[in-house]
Simulated scan of single mutants.
Amino acid sequence: MSLTPVARPHVTTAHQDLHSEQGALRGEHPGRSLNPVIKVADLAWLEFEKPDLDRAEVFARDFGFGVTARTRGELWLRGTFAGSPCMVIRRGRTSRFIGPVFRAAERADLERLARATGSAVRDADVPGGGQVVDLFDPSGFPVRVVWCGEELPALPEQRPLTLNFGIEQRRTNVTQRPPREPSRIQRLGHVVLETPVFARALNWYLDMLGMIVSDFLFLDGQRERGPTMAFIRCDRGSVAVDHHTLAMHLGPGTGYVHSAYQVTDLDAIAAGGEYLAERGYRRSWGIGRHIQGSQLFDYWRDPDRFMLEHFADGDLFSCDVEPGWAPMSAGGLAQWGPPATRDFLGTDPSPARLREVAQALRGDNELDPARLLALLKAMTS
């Protein structure tokens, strides 16, 4: 295992007209590990606890999930694609995010990971069965790596609309009337986490799980201190995968920021958003198109104030693309769309947020007053 990631010689080095105007400077983080323990294949599902599973199920169906299993104590949610579930919500005393679960590329990876970390392989509590290794990342998040014995079958899709483009006219004598219905979730795309130990957490995911960085963001005037956000993808060699499966950024808190779920197209995002708005749910930010990852996006709050994203048309990268580098700013989050809201950016000065800041400045982490002020400036610029 390599504790210090090093560059590989075959990665794509050109950035002009690629995905970022800037690449790494000499000596900067290369965004990958030379000899990771394993290489996970994908994000399998996310785990939450909530006290009211009935309310959680109502929102889940309105947001576009299917329900694959429901017991007195658990709610398993899925998309239309074949594979693993997207999310499990277990009954608990409070609403909280537990952690991410990644899918191993092969069963033997669990044994390899268990040997390297002194953990054990145990049976997984997942519909259809499987096995899992339980870990903790440097932020304290429970992270599980799973090998499932059975995949969920595919479900009927929400069909994309036939579009006319200039002189390319594929639809004649037919109107467009996208139905006002939930956006049908296809799959889980990514999760975003905040951590005050960003560099340690980043290296752990690269070294342990073999993930690689697509884009780094850095604070204005502090690039020499290293990145403060990373968009991280799985390494499946020549197979192109989502621009990011995991994203992390430096911050005073340790916790969930949002998770993202793929839907068919822009009309599915927009019509599904109208459906959610009519039922009284709160949009956090959208609709727009991101820069890092290029996704069309729309962000919503569930009844427990967790943020979830509908997305479509995201970038896909193979292992050959090296990280891009860009300054961190609120204005740099989207190519078009409304300005990022304070709710999305987490800049509302709530009592809980102020407590996180005070604790972080006293803790053993990567935050200091200069770093914190630069973060605040970035999120208001």
Rank of each mutant, 00 (worst) to 15 (best):
S2H: 09
H10D: 06
L25K: 10
E28L: 08
L34Y: 07
V37R: 05
I38L: 10
K39L: 00
A41T: 00
D42W: 09
F63S: 02
F63A: 04
G66S: 12
R78T: 13
S84D: 15
G92T: 09
R93F: 02
T94E: 09
I98C: 09
E106S: 08
A120T: 14
V121E: 05
R122K: 09
D123A: 14
P127Q: 06
G129W: 15
D134K: 03
L135T: 03
V145L: 11
E168N: 13
R170S: 14
T172Y: 15
P179E: 12
E181F: 10
P182A: 10
L188W: 14
T195I: 10
P196N: 03
P196K: 07
V197L: 09
A201W: 06
D215K: 00
G226Q: 07
A230W: 11
R236L: 15
A247V: 07
T254C: 09
Y261N: 04
D265F: 07
A277H: 05
A277N: 02
R279D: 02
I287N: 01
H290Y: 14
S294N: 09
Y299V: 06
F311N: 04
F317Y: 08
W325F: 11
P327R: 01
M328K: 00
G331T: 05
A334R: 01
W336M: 03
F344T: 02
T347E: 06
L354F: 12
L361E: 03
R362T: 08
E366L: 11
D368V: 11
L372P: 00
L375D: 00
M379L: 15
